[in-house]
Structure formats: C-alpha cells, structure tokens
C-alpha cells in the first residue's frame, strides 16, 4: 500500500488527496503545498524555520507553522489558511480599523493565531493576547494596534454570543 496515494486532508473546505494528485508528496511542506500547488498565497514565508509565524495556519483549529509541517502528517485533518477564514470573522474588520496591518506580510498568520486564541478564550486579557501572539513576529506595528484589534474583535464576538 502506498501511503502517498491514500493520503487526504481537507483544506479550506476542499478535500485534497494523493490519489488525484492534489497532494504531490507527503514530504512536501504544507507551506509549499498551499502556495505552489494550491495557489493560495495568503500564507507567507518569512523564515522557513518556525520562528516568525508568517506561515501560520490552523490545523483542526490549532495554530501551527506550515513551514514545519510535512503534509504526510495531515492525513484526516482539517487545515484552514487565511483564504478559508469566513469573511465575517470580526478579526478582519478589527485589524483593518485598528491599523493592525501595515506591510501586511505577518497579518494572515497573526489573524489566524488570534482566531485560535479567541476560539479557546473568547474574552482574553491583554496578557493572554500577548502570550498567544508571541510566535508571530511583526516588524512594523510594535504590536500595540494588534492587541487592540484582537481585544476589539473579542468584544464583537462576545456580542454575538
């Protein structure tokens, strides 16, 4: 049995599989699959060693660095990149309004890391936001407006509940 051909997982609601060629190889980095094979370039490469978080995506709702995930380990899992985040997610507007995006290269990963935080802690404190985003480096904003955006989005979501 060839594992590569049985491999399948869900990316942004769509099933990818080794059998139909939408997964080229189990040893491919998830980052490369997203950017080069799936053509979804919202996930960025900043360092290639899990340090900057620009490539962060959610796997089963948990934030991971896609540069350090071989797709062979995603069998049966659900992956969400920025392209799969619902456009109604309050983080999107909160980031735009707060000025939490400048050059924008860290923004998709930052938003997904924030989404993972808000899913497990819908009403975080500033310190919890700072802890949750410590794996996502931003060189433009000094982070203050990112904190504000996440706290603001938490308020919006809280209003829905």
């Amino acid at each position: 049995m060839n594992f590569a051909r049985t491999l399948e997982f869900t990316l942004n609601g769509r099933v990818l599989s080794g059998a139909d060629g939408s997964i080229a190889s189990p040893s491919m980095r998830l980052l490369d699959l997203l950017r080069l094979q799936a053509g979804q370039t919202g996930t960025k490469e900043g360092c290639g060693e899990g340090e900057c978080g620009a490539c962060a995506v959610l796997v089963d709702g948990e934030v991971v660095n896609s540069c350090l995930v071989p797709v062979g380990q995603l069998h049966g899992r659900t992956v969400m990149s920025i392209e799969g985040l619902p456009r109604t997610d309050p983080l999107l507007e909160a980031f735009a309004r707060a000025g939490a995006t400048q050059c924008g290269i860290c923004t998709p990963g930052m938003i997904l890391a924030a989404r993972a935080l808000l899913d497990r802690q819908p009403d975080p404190s500033l310190d919890e936001v700072r802890e949750a985003l410590a794996g996502n480096l931003c060189r433009c904003t000094g982070y203050a407006r990112i904190y504000a955006a996440v706290l603001d989005a938490a308020t919006v979501r809280g209003g829905d509940a």
Binding site: G50, G53, A56, V59, E62, V63, V64, N65, L68, V69, A113, A116, E131, A132, A134, G135, N136
Partner: peptide, 8 residues
C-alpha cells in the same frame, strides 16, 4: 517555543 511550536 511559541504556541504554534508547542502544538507540534
């Protein structure tokens, strides 16, 4: 590492 690292 970061939370993204701890998750893996």
């Amino acid at each position: 590492g970061s939370i993204a690292i701890q998750n893996r």
